[in-house]
Design a protein around this nucleic acid. Structure first.
Lengths: 196, 196
DNA sequence: CTAAAAACATACTAGTTAGTATGTTTTTGT
DNA sequence: ACAAAAACATACTAACTAGTATGTTTTTAG
């Protein structure tokens, strides 16, 4: 039971890349089979149907990535304002997987699937809430340390930041140019400084 | 050439509603024919193909709506900060066409089509830039009137606000509840007040 | 080593898709 | 009133879709 896990992971990873580029609905199972060199029999051995694979991508690929790349940086840093800015900066400018023309995978999935498939909705809400909660917790810590004003609503700010991040990722698709990120980051920095 | 224009408009409107609810790719032409009671012959008389219809929806339905509901309120008001807040509040809370579970039509289209179809991209970028420019112009006016600080970058703020709006519309899909809008609006108001 | 289960392979199906071919009806200008 | 063009109707096609039926091969446990 080792090689089998490899095929499964291979399917998930390649499928995720395709879906990130083309969207879930427009990525056919045959597309996935062609790029993975896996046969239909193997695919349906590992997944009951396409949606089950989609949920597996969220839970087995996106969730761990979230934990390492989105959650951890917020928990370790001393200063939440700097941590949030550095994180968004990293995600927009430095991260090598995320592409400007394809937006945010979680936001994409949400737009396409939420409200049409409860399982997708739940899985996506799960990881999104995790991010928000972590960010809010960091802000609360900052308030306790006196780095952030007392009258700031932590969760409210976390939602506001997340919304902006999702929005700018979608927005940048139109111009297909990272330059809009720089403009956004400037205003984000200004906004974050008003929390002090 | 009067009834014909009616059929065309009927197709565009019903198709737009379907696309807003289900997405562009997953709304089939047969779906549109079924809800409009129009035949395939009529459809393909009016539109060369599905994409041409999609572009027509953007240019002939979304663009005018943008002008009346998104642009005008920003041009008439005396105070840009109030105008922006009132506009976003209206769009999120009061507007009767926009549904929490379906997000923002322009953002949806952008996510689904931009980077895959240049015509869609251009049409969407066109109306988005129009909104941004109008908002930025209102902010510039506010700067001249002394309602907004001198060091504020108008276009930067307009992009920031637009991103947040798109983001929260997508975000609210997950919870399928207008309550998240209230939290967002509170922070938006706080943010807007820092421009003073 | 061997039987059973796990993992994969191939061929097929029924439904859906955008789009076309070829008509008929309706509207329009004169 | 009438021909021409505009507007619409019907039947079809070829490609693609998710999923299944039925195999064969590989792995694993005893």
């Amino acid at each position: 039971m080792k090689k089998a896990a490899g095929t499964r992971l291979n399917i998930l990873q390649k499928a995720f890349e395709l879906i990130y580029e083309k969207g879930y609905q427009t990525t056919s199972i045959d597309d996935i089979l062609a790029t993975t060199q896996v046969t239909k029999g193997a695919f349906y051995y590992h997944f009951r149907n396409k949606d089950e694979m989609g949920i597996a991508i969220i839970n087995e690929l996106l969730k761990p990535t979230l934990a390492s790349s989105f959650i951890a940086p917020l928990q370790n840093d001393k200063n939440p304002i700097e941590a949030i800015y550095k994180l968004i900066h990293y995600l927009l400018i430095e991260d090598e997987f995320l592409q400007v023309q394809h937006g945010c995978p979680v936001a994409n999935f949400t737009q396409e699937m939420a409200s049409w498939n409860k399982d997708f909705n739940d899985a996506l809400n799960d990881i999104t809430q995790q991010w928000i909660k972590t960010m809010a917790a960091a802000i609360v810590k900052g308030k306790e340390k006196g780095q952030i004003r007392d009258d700031i609503n932590a969760k409210q700010v976390a939602m506001f930041v997340t919304s902006g991040y999702w929005g700018i990722r979608n927005f940048a698709k139109l111009e297909n140019n990272k330059k809009v990120y720089l403009s956004y980051l400037k205003e984000l920095k200004r906004y974050l400084n008003t929390l002090k």
